[in-house]
């Protein structure tokens, strides 16, 4: 089953490689991994999406907790939570037809066109991975020049929060 694990860890050099190294050394899957400092610059917040049986997920959370740099973590999948991913897409829109079509799809998917040149649009879109996948499938694949995705961010719904 797919799990989204959120981790607070010391913002130290090497902390990321400790986590990544743990996953590769023990043969766990990483579907996506994102990390950035929090409002307290001494800490980073990481979101990992992984897959495994309940036993494997239990081992993953225990092994992560065992890392000295990990302060706290939660498996968001255990409760209700919000998941978002950011995507930037550069598309070729050299004809008026394509410009119109792309604009229409971007509106339907509630994205934004954030850069325009004679032949290109750059689109910004956020949402769940499924929604971003759906957008990519919807538009004419021959128009796509580049796709950049951030990986998943997650946060629990309601008053539950991951903090020190």
């Amino acid at each position: 089953m797919r799990h989204t694990i959120s981790i607070l860890l010391e913002n130290e050099a090497g902390a990321l490689s400790r986590v990544a190294g743990l996953f590769s050394a023990r043969g766990y899957n990483i579907e996506s991994l994102t990390v950035a400092p929090t409002e307290d610059p001494s800490m980073s917040r990481m979101t990992i999406v992984t897959k495994g049986t309940d036993e494997i997920i239990e081992q993953i959370t225990k092994q992560l907790n065992k890392l000295i740099d990990v302060i706290k973590l939660i498996d968001l999948t255990e409760g209700v939570y919000i998941e978002r991913e950011l995507m930037l897409v550069k598309v070729n829109v050299s004809t008026a037809h394509h410009r119109e079509e792309i604009k229409r799809f971007v509106d339907i998917f509630r994205g934004r066109i954030i850069d325009v040149s004679e032949t290109n649009y750059t689109i910004e879109m956020t949402g769940t991975g499924d929604k971003l996948d759906a957008f990519i499938k919807t538009i004419d694949s021959t128009l796509i020049l580049e796709v950049v995705r951030s990986g998943v961010l997650g946060i629990a719904r309601g008053s539950k929060s991951l903090r020190v």
Binding site: E58, Q59, K62, N65, K66
Partner: peptide, 11 residues
């Protein structure tokens, strides 16, 4: 003493 030793190989 190590939680990760628990149910690692045998439930």
């Amino acid at each position: 003493i190590d939680p990760s030793s628990i149910s690692k190989n045998v439930k």
